[in-house]
Structure formats: C-alpha cells, structure tokens
Write a protein that binds this DNA or RNA. Sequence first.
RNA 1: GGCCUCGUCGUACAAUGGAUAGUAUAAGAGUUUCCGAAGCUCCAGAUACAGGUUCGAUUCCUGUCGAGGCUACCA
Length: 523
Amino acid sequence: MSLTTSIQSAVIKGLEVIYSKSFDGKDFQINQTKPEFEGDYTVVLFGLLKPLKQSPDALGKSLGDYLIQNHPDFFSDYNIIKGFLNLVISDSYWNAVLKNNYSDTRYGRSPKKDKTIVVEYSSPNTNKPLHLGHLRNNFLGWSVSEILKADGYDVVKTCIANDRGIHICKSMVAWQKFANGATPESTGIKGDHFVGDYYVLFGAEYKKEISALVAAGMNDEQAEMEAPIMRAAQQMLVDWEAGKPDVIALWKKMNSWVYAGFDVTYRRIGSDFDAMYYESDTYLLGKQLVEEGLQKGVFFKKEDGSVWIDLTAEGLDEKIVQRKDGTAVYITQDIGLAVNKYEAYKYDSSIYVVGDEQNYHFKVLKLICGKLGLPSEGIYHLSYGMVELPTGRMKTREGTVVDADDIIDEMVRVAAQKTEELGKVKDFTPEELDALYDTIGLGALKFFILRVDPKKRMVFNPEESIDFHGFTASFVQFSHARAKAILRNEDVDPAFELLADEALLPLEKELLILLERYPATIQ
RNA sequence: GGCCUCGUCGUACAAUGGAUAGUAUAAGAGUUUCCGAAGCUCCAGAUACAGGUUCGAUUCCUGUCGAGGCUACCA
C-alpha cells in the first residue's frame, strides 16, 4: 500500500471514530506538503467542513490529535494552517520504509495483471531517414510501453513500416536514373540517408521538368501531371502492384538499405520492437476485410464502384475505404492491421502512438473496427503534437527537417564537450567514455522532448543547443555514477538504478523524500 | 463554414480543483578572475479576454479573440 493510501484510510477511520460519519477518498485530498511549510503530507480539510459543520481549526485539531494518538509509529507531529492539516511522518516509519525497500530493485512496480497491451509506435516511411518528429514518437511509445510493463501489463511493442506507395517509388525511380549503381556500401552513406537523398533528388528533378514544360507553354497543373519522372514513378507503382519481378527486386533492395540504416538509429536511441508489420502485407488483408464488411452491410458501394462507410450517425462523414479502381486507401491497411494484431495477441488494449493530425483518422478507425466486430473500446490513439521549428513546421520540400541522426550526434558531442570541461572522467577508458557520452547526450535529448505534455505542440530551436543545466543536470549526475558502475561491472546501487533508469518515468515520491531526508544512508 | 486541440514570466516548459502560480534560460545588479569564460548571490518578470460553477479555478462550463490541425478516390 502506498503512503498516500495509508494516510487516507487512517483519516477515514479517524473521521468515523470522532464524528460517526463515513467518507471515502474522494471527499478530501492528500497532497505532499509544500516545502515552505512544516510537514510531509497534507490533508486538505475544506471539503469536510460543511458535512461535519466544523471550523477548519477544530476539525484539524481533533483529527490531528486522533492520528497522533492512534498511529504514534506513523505520525509524529501535525500543524494546521487555514484548512490544511500538515502531518509529519515519524522517523521510525521512514526507517521501516527504507529497510523494507532498500534492496528491492523492483520497488514501485506492480504485480502482473494478465492483460495484454499492444503499443504501435515509430511508423517510419522507407523512403527517407527518421527526423525529430519520429524521435518524439519513439520516446513516447517506448516510455509508455515500459511504464505499462512496470505497471504489470504484458506489452507488445509493434512497428508498422509504411513500405509501399508512390513515395517509395519516387526514390526508386531517382536511383535508377541517377545512381549509376551506387550503393550505401560503395559510397559509405548510411542506408536510410542514401535512399532519402534520392527522394530529394526526385523532387529537384521533378521541379526542373515542370519548369521546362511550363516554359514550353504548358499550364502548371498539366505540367505536374505530365512531367516524365512523375509518370515513371506512377508507372513503377502500377508495376509494383502487378508484382513485376525487377521492380520488386529493386524495392526489396532499397528497403533493405533503409532498414539497415534504421536499425543503427533504433539501437542508438533504445527503441525496440517485438513485432514488425509491413504495409505491403497489411493492405491486402485490409482489402479482404472490405469485401467481408461489404457482405455484412457495414460498408456500401457507390455506383462508380468505390466503397464507403456511413458514419453520419456518429457525427462524422461518409468515409471512403476503397477506391473505385479497387485499390486500397490509407485506412484500408489500418483496418487490416488492427484485425491482424487482434488475432495475434487478443489484446485488452491497443495503443497507437501517432501525431495529432490523424485524430480524425483514428476516430474513424475505431468506429470501423467496432462495426466489424472487433472489441474497439481498447483502441486508444496516443496523439501528440508536432515538433516545430521557430519558423514553423518542418517541411521536407523546404529542407527544414531536423534529421534524427544529426541531432543525436550533436547532443552526444555537446555531452562530451561539457563532461571534459568538468574534468571528472580522467580515469575512464575511451570505450567507457563513448558509452558515457551516449548515455548523457541521449538522456538530455529524451528529457528535453518528454518533459513536454504530449498533446501540446513543441518548439525546437536548433540554434540554441539543448540545455544540459538545471533539472537535466541532476539526471546527468545520476547517469555519470550509474554508467560508471555498470561499465565497471560493479553492483549498482538500487537507488541509482531506479533514478537513472526511470528518471523519465513518474518518480515514486516516497523514495525522493527518503533521499532528501537520509542522503547519507543512500549514498 | 463545420469538427478537434492548444493559449501561463522576454523565451522554452511545470503546476491529481487547494496554501504566496514553480523551474530553466535570457535580461538587470553584485561577487569571483591578469583578461575572458564558467561559477556563485540577489532582483524583477506571466495564467489572452469576459462571464459562470465552487469555500476555493491556470485547471471544469459558456462565449469572444488568437494559434494549429482535420474536414482528399495523398500516406
């Protein structure tokens, strides 16, 4: 039982004894006492005044006296300021907490619940490298997964790769046209960046061709349609869907380069997945489900052959689920994926970590899943705001995207620089130093991103390096101590383990109080 | 137009409906130094606006204003 709930039940019992009235935990609040007041925990009495017809002072006094008399080993003192009853927890209680939990490396974690939660996060596109927005996604998805694990759930971390579509074909066409057979190996460029470069090249060439056509007298719209490189990309998409062997081979080859590059980044930031899904597989299942849904009457077909769902009764619009030419739209594959995941894991809850521009999309998906007979109450869209630059949104076309690998390198570089300035690492080996700088740099980056409420947009200014001072400094200090111990294979102090490992999780308040009151014991 | 989200010191972010709205940075003053940087001390600075609910509102509700997103046979 946590400290707060222990206090709560003691207060409820006390009120019953003194006033013969029963309350529950919702009738009053228990907070940590503000540092400027004496005490550790505070019972807020205001809510109790009216039903008990008592003044704050009288109620505080009788309750305070009761608690001290009946729980002398728990409370040692109290004071009343306005309607706040500040309780001082006794040293013997703290000592008992410390003794019982000091060597418990699983302190704060819940027992197993036998419930499964699927968390989908990251969702990369296989035509370009990860950027800052992906980092927010990955940090959120990974953290939420680990928090849920600590809370006793069985968590399945999944990742859907958006590995098909016109954007992939653009990179492929540009590579065919301009690469002369170059590969990541031959150029020494990381695979995802290598492929991303051709995606950019496609854009540049496309622009050039449009200007040429416009100069020759074509209007803008027509030029955009007629540009040869775009027609090549569209043709490649058709060929891909038709399974043309050389196109499939090229697609597989270029995707494998990208995955190799992603692996490096994922390993570095600590993202891992229990299951990978590929849109190239799930979209086919989605199409099957559209067919079944049509039989069941969940969907309906318009005269032109396109398939829709009517969500006007739910306050939304009609939504297309399959084009008139029979090809899949974006949501088609998500329907397939949802069913696929449910059949595989029979989850109690399915969390999607996806940006807030898709709020509507997931509202629709949840409704469709429900209508198809999936238990959809557990579907939860963990929506987060964009990471913006001071100049506004990041845009690939304008080259204003902050690359994930670049920002990580920069953080680690700054970590190294600052650490060396402090000169506390003279006895580290080069390997230990590299590991240490990675820990510190990535820790600061994760903290910088995760400290912001997920649903809010956040601004990242690349001109100002991320702050290693202040709150982060304490994180860094713990990381130093812990990294060193781990690298030396020493036993890690459980307190360090907890604070460093889970500094990004909600910290157990009790342990923090212990640290403050008994620093000598912990160190 | 309709729907959704967000508006807090100059800036970036906090605050389960509770006490004097917190932290970091920048700014100002001082201190330290051969000079500079870093450091240390002090100081000032915000709930967009108007109502409502409540003993009590940054928090909940309504309206206004502002920012962003969605409203695609793009993904």
